[in-house]
Amino acid sequence: MNIVGQLAPLAFGLAVIGSGIGVGIIVGKTIESVARQPELQGRLSSLMFLGIALTEALCFIAIAVAFIPFPKP
């Protein structure tokens, strides 16, 4: 039985769900921060996009790990 092939879709789903939650939190906190201090909008936006890029990179790493072949015992 090939268990790695059966777990890959689960890994994809968890990676996408985690990434979506992370991006939602980042954007929500940025909107909250801009509402409190509108003069920092430019700086906060650039930090937001950096955070989104790092969060999505973790998603891509999780998907890539699912494709690593494991040696058979």
Results as ranks from 00 to 15, higher is better:
N2F: 11
N2Q: 03
N2T: 02
I3H: 08
V4H: 13
G5N: 14
Q6A: 14
L7D: 10
L7A: 08
L7T: 10
A8R: 10
A8L: 09
A11Q: 10
A11F: 03
A11T: 12
A11P: 05
F12E: 13
F12L: 14
F12G: 07
G13C: 13
G13Y: 00
L14R: 05
A15Y: 10
A15C: 01
A15V: 04
V16F: 11
V16Y: 11
I17P: 00
I17T: 07
I17R: 00
G18N: 06
S19I: 00
G22W: 13
G22R: 15
G22I: 13
G22T: 12
V23R: 14
V23I: 15
V23E: 11
G24K: 06
G24H: 13
I26N: 05
I26M: 10
I26W: 14
I26Q: 12
G28N: 13
K29A: 07
T30L: 03
T30P: 02
I31H: 00
I31T: 03
E32W: 03
E32S: 12
S33R: 14
S33H: 05
S33E: 14
A35Y: 05
R36H: 08
Q37T: 05
Q37I: 02
Q37D: 06
Q37H: 07
P38F: 02
P38W: 01
P38S: 09
E39A: 12
E39H: 01
E39C: 00
L40D: 09
L40A: 11
Q41S: 15
Q41N: 12
Q41G: 15
Q41D: 07
G42D: 12
R43P: 06
R43H: 13
L44P: 02
L44A: 09
S45P: 02
L47S: 14
L47T: 14
L47Q: 15
F49Y: 12
F49H: 10
L50H: 01
G51E: 11
G51C: 06
G51S: 13
A53C: 04
A53V: 06
A53R: 06
L54M: 09
L54D: 02
L54K: 05
L54Q: 04
L54F: 15
T55Q: 13
A57V: 02
A57S: 13
L58T: 03
I61Q: 07
A62G: 05
A62N: 09
A64P: 04
A64C: 13
V65A: 06
V65N: 00
A66R: 07
A66M: 00
A66Q: 02
F67G: 05
F67D: 06
P69C: 03
F70G: 01
F70A: 08
P71R: 05
P71I: 06
K72R: 06
K72C: 00
K72H: 10
P73Y: 01
P73W: 00
